[in-house]
Design a protein around this nucleic acid. Structure first.
Lengths: 213, 213
DNA sequence: AGAATTTATGTCAGCTGCTGACAGATGACA
DNA sequence: TGTCATCTGTCAGCAGCTGACATAAATTCT
């Protein structure tokens, strides 16, 4: 079995980079949880890792970027899983199956359970971070739309339907997440259950409402 | 006919405040359009109006806040019109009628035509501003959901459907706006037409997609 | 192995956004 | 007219963020 594309031994340099990156994230979240997001300065974070402030900004676009970076990993996974779904599947079924796949992965990576909950808690309870996450949802939306366009065999540039479906799907997800946050549900299983619930609600409500019932 | 709530002659003080507020907005947009949003500093804005920087922050939460403040006026109008729609109207029809009412108002206030186009152009072409607008869309969403909950006669706190409908509606609007931006359409009529178009597309596409077709 | 090259990091210097605290000016109201 | 509330200016400072340049480390080439 040959190497999969472009990953032939990470190399010392790359390993070091990943290590500092992780160290920054870990230190940051320790501080965030200890004294709050806003009250934590970048100087404190870099001091904890013993790295210059300039280096911080070479890894992350800013404090917000770091805070949501953990979630972005799952977004990436989402896109990969979505692209891998069979083409004949109807769009909404593919999306539903994909999101379940992501939650499976979250559950599988046992160590991150606690972190997942903490991160979600942190983000949903900070207006600034919730907004930062909206930004990345938006980027996700465009990539999702692009994948959906291929599946639906239409031109993304001229046909707004893929974008519409992607945007609506993410909106449903967001409503589910916000609902969880309001009730303090942050465990993967709880979140997954709520997503499924809201998904079902959307399937029942939206068609009725939008066709003028 | 009695005075409508709390508006018995604005008073000199209030008029002055409104004047500075307008002056700040006007000066800011002049600069934004002349040299771009990011390149314009708050110092330049306040210098143009001959006001201290501190005063700026007493009127606006920040540069972003000023930039989207013009649009927020329409958001407020939207909520008022929505609350005034007859209760027996189905939700989606009420929303559609309301948005048309807002565009009517934009067209009616002739002076603002040019400004409306300029503001939309500015916002949609600045990632930071587009995000700021998302934030206000989010606030709008909650107030919309609250009004819809009354109409649908359900509890907002326990029933996610009003939120779901509001969120989906705003998503459709946003897709329409972004579509306009991509094609450089910023005149009220053009935007209104596009909104109606995407609205129709959603009515046709979403029910089909979400019921698994 | 040693030189050459690329890349990550540190240092420094500076701008911009934003806020608190206090003092002075100005409209509101009796 | 005088008192009071509110708006505004000044100042001082923190935090986020960036460009430019120098240094150190890793990778590659010979």
């Amino acid at each position: 079995m040959t190497e999969t594309s472009a990953a032939p031994a990470p190399g010392l340099r790359e390993r070091k980079k990943q290590r500092t990156r992780s160290a920054l994230i870990d230190a940051a979240f320790d501080l965030f949880l200890a004294k709050g997001y806003e009250a934590t300065t970048i100087d404190e974070i870099v001091a904890a890792v013993d790295v210059s402030q300039r280096t911080f900004f070479r890894y992350f676009a800013g404090k917000e970027d770091l805070a949501v970076s953990v979630m972005r990993a799952y977004d990436q996974l989402f896109l990969e899983l979505l692209a891998a779904r069979p083409t004949e599947e109807p769009p909404i079924a593919a999306l539903a199956a994909t999101i379940n796949g992501v939650f499976d992965e979250v559950r599988r990576s046992g160590d991150d359970h606690a972190r997942f909950a903490k991160v979600r808690d942190l983000i949903e309870n900070n207006p600034a971070l919730a907004m930062a996450q909206l930004r990345y949802f938006n980027e996700l939306e465009q990539e999702m739309a692009s994948i959906l366009a291929r599946r639906m065999d239409v031109e993304l540039a001229t046909d707004l339907r893929p974008t519409l479906v992607a945007a609506t799907f993410l909106t449903v997800m967001r409503v589910a997440f916000e609902g969880c946050a309001r009730e303090g549900l942050f465990q993967p299983d709880e979140v997954a259950a709520r997503v499924e619930e809201v998904f079902a609600m959307a399937s029942e409500t939206l068609p009725r409402v939008w066709s003028g019932g």
